[in-house]
């Protein structure tokens, strides 16, 4: 069981990251941001960066670092906010999000010195690349782990299943995929767009599958991630984390309207008020 201190730290970091998401997304003005899919992922990314992964912002390319591959690249604000909190990027750099000439695009661009391992945004590819990275670690006899954040809508992509089968073939038990199952994709709910039992699909592909009923709960995430990180059962691991799209901002939660859009001043004020209220609860 994760200790209270770590759970508190993750929750504290998650609150700060949500604030960064809102600030960066609002700062992008009319260029907008993928608020909903970043906010659903916050506890997952926070648990990895501040509880689970071996990494060092002072030495971002150290050989034995655990790798984090954000396959659902549109939710880049979850990653950027973690990189900011961890010290990979500065507040000033965060403020350039989506700006002309910024290295923080609307989808991550590989930039290992700032902690961005893989370019992503065309869905499915980050996960498949992560599988190759996990295989490379096996070939080289290195002990680090590879974590990849995947969207539930992203599981529509064919390459996800090409890579999922291949990961089982090569016994990539040093790989942990986390599906951010927020039940909403761009044009509708996952049920409306492609109503499939992804749990059954991952099991059928041969993965070690764990379903988290509350994927925004730090304690259960930490336990699940720690268990899978330490497991060497010959199978790649996937945590299907049931989350809430837009988590933490009342008018975004579960909404089909906040996948990606600009935020106006009124909405920003309301979002900040939500985050401030959460602190006092």
């Amino acid at each position: 069981m994760a200790n209270t201190e770590t759970v508190d730290l993750i929750n504290e970091k998650a609150a700060l990251m949500r604030r960064h998401v809102v600030e960066m997304g609002f700062g992008a003005g009319g260029r907008g941001a993928h608020f909903g899919p970043a906010l659903s992922s916050i506890e997952i990314v926070a648990s990895l960066f501040f509880g689970i992964m071996n990494h060092d912002p002072e030495n971002p390319t150290m050989a034995d670092r655990d790798r984090f591959v954000q396959s659902k690249g549109h939710a880049c604000l979850a990653l950027y906010s973690a990189l900011g909190e961890a010290g990979y990027i500065t507040k000033e750099q965060m403020a350039t999000f989506k700006g002309d000439g910024s290295f923080l695009a609307g989808h991550p661009t590989r930039n290992p010195q700032y902690g961005i391992e893989v370019s992503s945004g065309t869905l499915g590819n980050g996960f498949a690349v992560a599988c190759g990275m996990a295989k490379a670690a096996k070939i080289k006899g290195e002990d680090h782990k590879v974590f990849s954040l995947v969207g539930d809508g992203e599981c529509n992509e064919g390459v996800i299943w090409e890579a999922a089968m291949n990961a089982v073939k090569y016994g990539l038990d040093n790989l942990v995929a986390i599906i951010d199952r927020n039940f909403v994709q761009l044009a509708g709910t996952t049920k409306d767009i492609m109503d499939v039992d992804i749990e059954a699909l991952w099991r059928a592909a041969g993965w070690d599958v764990l379903v988290l009923e509350d994927g925004n709960d730090a304690a259960s995430l930490l336990d699940a991630l720690a268990e899978m990180k330490d497991s060497s059962n010959g199978k790649p691991h996937v945590i299907i984390a049931n989350t809430t799209k837009g988590k933490g901002i009342s008018f975004m939660e579960g909404s089909l309207n906040w996948h990606a859009r600009p935020m106006n001043q009124e909405q920003y004020d309301a979002a900040i008020a939500d985050l401030e209220n959460a602190k006092t609860i």
Binding site: C131, A134, A136, N166
Partner: peptide, 23 residues
């Protein structure tokens, strides 16, 4: 040597992951 199955998309992505790690 890796045969990824009849899956050219993954052939490319998997190769990229191997290359990013120095192979």
């Amino acid at each position: 040597f890796f045969d990824v199955g009849i899956a050219e998309q993954n052939l490319i992505d998997f190769s990229a992951g191997l290359a990013l790690e120095g192979l």
